[in-house]
């Protein structure tokens, strides 16, 4: 059964597909799994999303862009709500998103259970080089160019690359 609300929601979802992460412009907020819900009541629209990292500077810009894109397309009564719980996890990233990341040169996150613990001096997490597909890589630093990434280098093709770390 299709009603007008679901049609509207699909339209809005398609528009939100164009809202990209300013730091990783190949990923939309839908690819990232940041979009939680679209609530429609008459002409009022509420977009509910979850920020990725607490300090991510892209969050404010993303919420401003959502508003702008929707307004440009005739939705003037838009409310953006940011919810912290349940906390965002890289497991919410879509398969499509992971593919886009890889072709952009950033290794996509491994499934979460592998690295989220407190053990010290662990061997590096096995990460596949996004350029030559080799697994012969090593971690240079647990912190990279943005809060969500770690820095790796491939020992075969020698390219350094970003890894979108599990979170």
């Amino acid at each position: 059964m299709v009603n007008t609300a679901t049609i509207e929601e699909a339209k809005i979802r398609a528009l939100l597909e164009t809202v990209k992460d300013p730091e990783i412009p190949v990923l939309s907020i839908i690819d990232l799994g940041m979009l939680r819900e679209i609530k429609i009541k008459d002409d009022k629209i509420e977009v509910v999303f979850t920020p990725t990292y607490s300090g991510c500077p892209a969050t404010d810009m993303i919420s401003a862009t959502i508003k702008m894109v929707l307004q440009e397309n005739g939705y003037s009564n838009v409310k953006i709500t940011s919810v912290l719980s349940p906390a965002w996890t890289t497991d919410w990233m879509t398969e499509e998103g992971k593919k886009k990341l890889k072709s952009y040169g950033i290794a996509p996150p491994n499934p979460k259970q592998q690295v989220c613990h407190q053990e010290l001096f662990l061997p590096d997490e096995a990460v596949q080089c996004p350029r030559c597909d080799s697994w012969n890589t090593h971690r240079i630093s647990e912190f990279g160019s943005t809060a969500c990434k770690a820095l790796y280098q491939c020992d075969d093709c020698k390219e350094p690359f970003d890894y979108f770390k599990c979170h």
């Binding site: 920020p51 990292y53 607490s54 300090g55 919810v83 912290l84 719980s85 349940p86 906390a87 965002w88 996890t89 989220c116 613990h117 407190q118 053990e119 010290l120 647990e142 912190f143 809060a147 979170h167």
Partner: peptide, 17 residues
């Protein structure tokens, strides 16, 4: 509780580092 749920993930990295 919600802020803590979000923050604890990052804090795990800080503890290890």
């Amino acid at each position: 509780a919600a802020i803590a749920e979000k923050s604890i993930k990052e804090t795990t990295y800080h503890v290890r580092w």
